[in-house]
Amino acid sequence: MSLGIYIAGSSGQMAQRKLNDIAHNLANVNTAGFLADRSSFTTQLANKIEGQTENAPSFSKFGNQFVDMQEGSIKTTGNVLDFAIQGGGFFRVALPDGSEAYTRAGNFKLNANGSLLTQSGHSVLDVSGNAIQLQPGQISADTSGGLSVDGSKVSQFGIVTILDGSKVEKIGETLMKTPISNTESASPDITVHQGSLQGSNVNAILAMTEMIDTMRSYQATMKVVEQFNQQAAQLSDKVGRIQG
């Protein structure tokens, strides 16, 4: 078979992959603190036939993936245990294995002992890496991330910024992991807002446009595959047939 059919096929596979990312982003269009996945594609040289290096046929290949670090829109909920970070920071969260993860989903809850937890029950950490504990009472937060109960300050949110969005690994539950070297403690221009939540940063219009684009380019590459198929059919059908 001709090489072209495989090249068109590889491009079709990448379109499927891209659609999957788009579907994942769209599925999370209403998930608080969700950051969109983006991927890029690259080319891989098929082979260097006849010393041809320029305009050589090349496959489409999955390049890299990164997390879109843009801020989602902040909406007011009025709930005492909802916190939004403005300025691109992340809350520090302890995982059961002792390591740390980061999240922008500030829809926290308390357990019976007064520990501040994420929706999936992981402890939220303070500035020195200890789990935040709040006694019953009126909980308030100032814009620098200080937490007070009944007016007296008891804790301070641990907030970091992530330097390189491509070195981030998502682990589900709106949590992300990244090496400590890729984080930096938050600068003073990052503010915390109580009673607000940061929504998903998925841009629905962009995602829908990308979806149409992906679908059409998939259809186009499949047309190419079809052409190659017809060509091959003609080859086996017509060439060698004795006419007359």
């Binding site: 999957n20 579907a23 994942h24 890299n64």
Partner: peptide, 16 residues
């Protein structure tokens, strides 16, 4: 330098 992860969608963490 970067990995490849494929997201599989969304789940409900709770009705609060």
């Amino acid at each position: 330098p970067t990995g490849t992860q494929i997201g599989l969608g969304v789940r409900t963490s709770g009705v609060e």
